[in-house]
Computed example of a mutant assay.
Amino acid sequence: MLNLDLWFFAIAGPAVIFAGISKGGFGSGAAFAASSMLALVVEPAMALGVMLPLLMLIDAATLRPYWGRWRLREAMILILGGLPGVALGAMLFRVASPDLLRLLIGLVSVGFVLWQIASRSGKLKLGTRPMPDWGGGIAGLTAGFTSFISHAGGPPAAVFLLARGLDKTAYQATTVLVFWAINIAKFIPYAALDMFTQATTQANLALAPFALLGAWLGVRAHRIVPERLFFAVTYVALTATGLKLIWDGLT
């Protein structure tokens, strides 16, 4: 049951705006925080079902501003690797309990924060040589899998793209293209798993303006907002929600 009450919009509205800002301006890396936040107030499968159409709407809104500025080779490597990852995620989803999904989403959330802290502090080095194509295939497989179970494909894709030396705008444009394709691929298995209902459709219609506002803000924030500030807020939110979901999943 999904109650579109004040409490739902107090959580979902800012979460969806946040997802739009992340996908529109910061490489999609933290967009899955919206799913983590929603999973605090509704069943995880319902949270994912609410978010996918909204993420697809954000994808459509951000394709045009970054059109043609992506690196097509890197994008295709990630997309082709991501498709079997989506299939793998669908197979796991069929047997996963709500508590297992909470645990997985929580672990991905906290793992993302730890990975970012390690990479930015220099403790985790990506290397000076560009990652080979086969490494991108593995990154794509991981991105497709984590994207399916928690909309968290950004970190594995980022490892590959950053190791290929993309500049800020090419990196952003490539992630927009990659997750536009992966999210389309996720739609059919999500529907087959009954993750779209009348309640999620009503939530989508109500939250669509928040998604478009977030996308608009993200494209503009790409040029003017320091990434350090944006991701500092992201890390705090993801750590708190991730730990709460892990606790709920275990207890």
Rank of each mutant, 00 (worst) to 15 (best):
A30D: 03
A31L: 07
A31H: 13
A31I: 03
A33I: 05
A34G: 04
S35G: 08
S35Q: 03
S36P: 01
S36G: 12
M37Q: 03
A39G: 02
L40Q: 13
V41I: 11
V42A: 11
E43S: 14
P44W: 00
P44R: 07
A45T: 07
A47L: 00
L48Q: 07
G49P: 15
V50M: 08
M51W: 11
P53A: 03
L54M: 08
L54N: 08
L55Y: 04
M56R: 15
M56Y: 13
L57P: 03
L57A: 14
L57C: 09
I58F: 09
A60Y: 00
L63V: 07
G68D: 07
G68I: 07
G68R: 00
R69P: 04
W70L: 13
R71N: 04
L72W: 12
L72P: 11
L72C: 12
R73I: 10
E74V: 02
M76L: 12
I77L: 01
I77M: 00
L78S: 03
I79W: 00
L80K: 02
G81I: 01
G82V: 11
P84M: 14
G85A: 13
A87I: 05
L88T: 09
G89Y: 03
M91W: 15
L92G: 11
L92R: 08
L92M: 12
F93N: 10
R94Q: 08
R94L: 13
R94H: 09
R94F: 12
S97Y: 06
S97E: 11
P98N: 07
L100W: 04
L101W: 08
L101I: 05
R102K: 07
R102F: 12
L103D: 15
I105G: 02
I105D: 01
L107A: 10
V110I: 14
V110P: 00
W115M: 05
W115C: 06
I117Q: 10
A118N: 14
S119C: 12
S121M: 08
S121H: 14
G122A: 13
G122D: 14
G122Y: 07
K123N: 15
K123W: 15
L124F: 10
L124E: 05
L126Q: 08
P132C: 13
P132Q: 04
P132E: 02
